[in-house]
Design a protein around this nucleic acid. Structure first.
Lengths: 211, 211
DNA sequence: GAAGAATTTTGGACTGGAAACAAAAAAGTG
DNA sequence: CACTTTTTTGTTTCCAGTCCAAAATTCTTC
């Protein structure tokens, strides 16, 4: 029952000012979340049914879908947690005085690390980002705003071409991570994710820099 | 009942040398395929159920899943048809003496055209390419080998960097199409697909060329 | 072309995700 | 405590997809 990764933190802390109803909601949501992620890690995302999660979290199936409108939405919370960790790592590096290009590389390395570590959860997670249902794609994008982390880094480098908007370049880099991670997990799961990602970043950055 | 696009061609022509059983199989498969694509175009992919297709094609639901293990598999046949058309267009241009860089641009333009025209079918189609189930992703990739069209074009240009394999660059370009098309359809469906794709290609090609 | 073998179709049962909804339970309020 | 509002529950429904056994079709051989 020991997990390779530490159990994800609760999303929100209970607050004394909240009503009983609000507190119970938060506790229930946290319970569902914790239980779901644990089951996903133990048995795989596909093998875990909504009924499993509901039963283990001591709520009805209907309630589970009250809190998370679809199974992947639980994963989205986990993705938000991962991305916010990435953000923290970068901020730390910034305190240490790293320049933007180095931070970008650091971000990429960290992304590779987490991709390798969470190999089973990353595919269904990233898959949400490109859901053909725009509402779901948007929800995923807002939960995991990787481009929003990359954007300020690009703005700081001063080496970026100016005939394409920074937003677009950041989005391209974020999507490059996405497709590389998916390609890796589907076709070359035995290679180190780090190598694949490094090559992809080289390509896309060379396109992003001024000539 | 008139469609904006001509009805997709039959996948295979009946062959006199085949047994009755084989011929019936082909005819049934073609009927299912034609009917399904038509329903997808008329009512949308999501709105069309397997039961709808089966009933309209005069087979049982079970038989439908005999021929196509999942609904998207029908779309894959359509995607194969689209990609083979792309291939033909490029070969035509080659006969006309166009150089590789121009052919690549032409390919991109053609891709933009078909993306715009088939806007409702492209998202579920491209989505298959990144299905977390590797078996399905592979099936999609083999049905629509866009990278295989791009690869020889890159080899002809002589301007491509040599520190990354051509295969990888071709794959990156193909995936760039994918993510751009998905981003377009989810977030900016009112912009012309052509503009979005053009900018994305510029970025990725500048990364692909020698400095 | 009839008999028997092989293959395919058919339709029903079943599982799981997701939506919808009415009834029950819990929490909030005066 | 009584009354309102919110939430949970459990059931129904729909759809994708799997499995299976019985029926139908095609093939083979005599």
């Amino acid at each position: 029952m020991t997990l390779s990764t530490p159990a994800p933190k609760p999303l929100l802390q209970d607050d004394l000012k909240l009503s009983l109803r609000e507190r119970q909601k938060i506790r229930r949501r946290n319970r569902i979340y914790q239980v779901a992620i644990q089951l996903f890690k133990e048995n795989g995302f596909d093998k875990t049914t909504a009924t499993d999660i509901a039963r283990t979290a001591h709520v009805s199936r209907g309630t589970f879908f009250n809190y998370y409108p679809y199974k992947e939405a639980v994963l989205l919370d986990y993705g938000a947690y991962i991305v916010s960790n990435l953000h923290d790592v970068i901020e730390e590096r910034r305190q240490e005085g790293l320049d933007a290009a180095a931070m970008l590389e650091e971000l990429w390395l960290e992304l590779a690390r987490v991709t390798q570590e969470e190999r089973d959860l990353i595919p269904p997670l990233t898959y949400e980002l490109i859901n053909p249902d725009p509402i779901r794609a948007k929800a995923a994008y807002e939960a995991m705003p990787l481009a929003k982390i990359i954007e300020p880094l690009l703005r700081e480098t001063h080496r970026i071409r100016d005939d394409v908007s920074i937003e677009r370049i950041a989005a391209t880099i974020a999507y490059t991570y996405l497709m590389t991670a998916l390609r890796w997990s589907a076709f070359h799961p035995n290679r180190p994710a780090k190598d694949e990602l490094k090559k992809a970043l080289t390509l896309v950055l060379d396109g992003a820099y001024k000539r």
